[in-house]
Design a protein around this nucleic acid. Structure first.
Lengths: 191, 191
DNA sequence: CAGCAGGTAGAACGATCGTTCTACGATATC
DNA sequence: GATATCGTAGAACGATCGTTCTACCTGCTG
């Protein structure tokens, strides 16, 4: 019958790509559905066939960001090496990410700024992403033998947030070195 | 019947207070002028007499936040003590701030998430605030004799951002201790 | 008391918001 | 080749956006 429908619906993909780009660059409440449709080269009916509404589009955007980051993490783990090396590689990857890709801050933080209701679907995705990231870091810190892995993970989450925000508002040339230096200190990589 | 001049224009003050509360709690694009007017108990004409438009109201909101934070800093300096003590007091003040007042993230970061144009008046206020804060911290770090005061200041700005965001999204009970511990480490207060 | 500002009130503006509607075209199955 | 299905097209909906308008009321100054 039907094989995987990954390329079956180009409309949906173009829609999600355009929405992701616009939501990230201009804020969620700042872009209307019309802008997204125009950018995607698609009409209203197509969008409402693939997504329940604008909020579902926002959710899909954040879900795909989450999937991308989990992919980064899995790739880093697949490369092997000691947990300590892996920790250093995660820090470097974040520095590259804020330099090249996420130059407009953190998608999740920015989204949360516009969605005050903590029970909303959007905020639930943000919370789930952050919980996963902190736990993944805590496991890594534990494997690396850090004295207080949970505290170290909390600090590293803190630092990634700050690096993303700072790269946007202060310029990456100021923020990235400060992030790497502080993070390596927290991770016990530099004594 | 003459009251002090501070209450001479209660309309403007009530307007700014209501706008600040709503902008911070629900996001800027998320609240309409109607909501602000209703909350302030004021009508449209009154608002447009005191402010050029909604964006001017946003600017006034951020300016007042900036003034408040500069006030905190000045108060801490006025208390006297060594630069090192002052540095520690600034860190403690931030921890108290994210615990008690700024529980919905950083007003400036949240605003920047909704204003993509770096040349816009709103973003200029954000930039000015951050520049001031980093320079003030750098002076303090220099006075405290830290080896690389500019780097330390950059890290501390990073950490305050993260603490504000983390307090909102992860809960202050997780974030505040992580912030204090990391910041004291960066500031050379704990060896 | 007359006159005049400045704050207030509420209606109304055009534009845009997110959403729903019906009609049309392409594709795949029987 | 007829038919059912799904994506597409574009108009239209009510609601809300930020802003402007005219009329009214108040408290000063002469």
């Amino acid at each position: 019958m039907d094989e995987p429908t990954t390329t079956r619906t180009p409309g949906r993909e173009r829609l999600l790509a355009a929405a992701s780009r616009l939501f990230y660059r201009e804020g969620i409440n700042g872009v209307g559905v019309d802008r997204i449709l125009e950018e995607a080269g698609v009409t209203r009916a197509t969008m409402y066939r693939h997504f329940a509404g604008k909020e579902a589009l926002v959710a899909a955007y954040l879900e795909s960001e989450d999937a991308t980051l989990r992919g980064y993490f899995a790739d880093a783990e697949a490369e092997g090496g000691t947990p300590t090396e892996l920790l250093g590689r995660v820090i470097d990857t974040i520095a590259i990410d804020i330099t090249s890709y996420h130059t407009r801050g953190c998608p999740f933080i920015n989204a949360a700024a516009e969605f005050p209701d903590a029970d909303s679907p959007v905020r639930r995705i943000v919370t789930a992403h952050r919980t996963w990231f902190r736990q993944a870091l805590a496991e890594l810190a534990r494997a690396a033998g850090l004295p207080d892995p949970d505290a170290a993970a909390a600090s590293l989450v803190l630092l990634r947030d700050a690096a993303l925000v700072g790269g946007y508002l202060d310029g990456v040339e100021v923020t990235a070195p400060a992030f790497v230096a502080t993070a390596r200190q927290v991770a016990g990589l530099d004594v």
